[in-house]
């Protein structure tokens, strides 16, 4: 029971991170029908930016308040990562819009390779470690064979995720940007005819996706305290799995899928074997697509003849 509770907490924490990344996949796929392969690497880049901002603030500028530094890092990383993704969309995807369908995919794969190697070249291939922050731990159960703990970091992760998701949800459901986005999803040409600036809407989608990936990056960085240039691929694929599991194109689906993938991964490691935890994630991806291609909350696709 204690193990179960502990794993539940850990799984939700990890799942929040996956969910945040998954939103970027789901939104981009929804609006331009492309699997943005570079999104995992954008996440990795954001974690790197966050880590460096944190070190700049605490060491170079001598900031002592960790919470304040965290907030600045969070905002800074969101802005900078959004700028990166904006530029990436502009350079690598926009020129290919409306062309051959495989071209943007290859371009995205190229961008993914470019980003991870860019970080490797400019910052080196070694793991970058920072001292732990927010490492206060609450013991939920004591005296048993096993103490169930809830760290401050975990509360922070779930809290930040929830708050940002609520804000984001408002943005997409209630504002004109959200409406424009949904219109572009349905029919881009018609949306353009009705006076929606499609380019701008797509750019904003990339910007929002990157900002949320940056939140995930900051949380990842503060949770694990280690970042490496190759950290983008696996979380990226898992987040994509989450997006697919939840039903691609569906925002609540992405979060739900993220939480499920996080839980499955954690429980699989705890009860079966940590060797095959990635196999489990990939198998879920394959099984979902084969047996439930519209995911948990997605709309089923009817074949038009």
């Amino acid at each position: 029971m204690e193990v179960f509770l502990q794993q539940l907490i850990n799984g939700l924490t990890l799942g929040s991170i996956y969910g945040l990344i998954a939103i970027g996949y789901t939104m981009v796929f929804g609006i331009i029908g492309m699997v943005n392969f570079a999104h995992g690497d954008v996440f990795m880049l954001s974690a790197f930016i966050a880590l460096m901002l944190f070190v700049v603030l605490t060491q170079l500028l001598g900031m002592t308040s960790i919470p304040l530094a965290f907030v600045i890092v969070l905002i800074g990383a969101m802005v900078l990562t959004a700028l990166w993704n904006w530029a990436i969309e502009r350079v690598a995807y926009r020129p290919l819009r409306g062309s051959f369908r495989l071209a943007p995919l290859i371009s995205a794969i190229g961008m993914s390779i470019f980003l991870s190697n860019f970080v490797q070249v400019v910052q080196g291939p070694r793991n970058k470690t920072i001292p732990p922050m927010f490492d206060k731990v609450i013991h939920l159960t004591t005296g048993g064979t096993y103490d169930v703990t809830l760290s401050l970091k975990q509360i922070l992760i779930v809290l930040v995720t929830a708050v940002l998701l609520a804000g984001f949800w408002y943005l997409v459901q209630k504002t004109s940007l959200g409406r424009a986005q949904r219109a572009c999803e349905q029919d881009r040409r018609m949306a353009a005819l009705l006076g929606i600036d499609v380019d701008r809407t797509i750019s904003l989608t990339f910007v929002i996706g990157a900002a949320l990936a940056a939140v995930a990056g900051v949380l990842y960085m503060s949770y694990y305290g280690v970042v490496n240039f190759s950290d983008g691929f696996i979380p990226g694929v898992k987040a994509f799995t989450a997006a697919v599991l939840g039903g691609i194109g569906s925002l609540p689906g992405a979060v739900l899928g993220g939480l499920l993938i996080g839980l499955i991964e954690v429980f699989w490691s705890a009860y079966f074997s940590s060797d095959y935890k990635d196999v489990a994630a990939f198998s879920i991806l394959a099984l979902t697509l084969i047996f439930m291609p519209s995911g948990l909350l997605g709309r089923p696709e009817i074949e038009k003849v």
Partner: peptide, 21 residues
């Protein structure tokens, strides 16, 4: 050699933009 994969990735993007087909 260090820049090999960096250039490789950037090259993929560039070639798709120049010759998408």
């Amino acid at each position: 050699v260090q820049y090999r994969m960096l250039i490789f990735g950037a090259g993929m993007v560039l070639m798709m933009i120049l010759k998408p087909r």
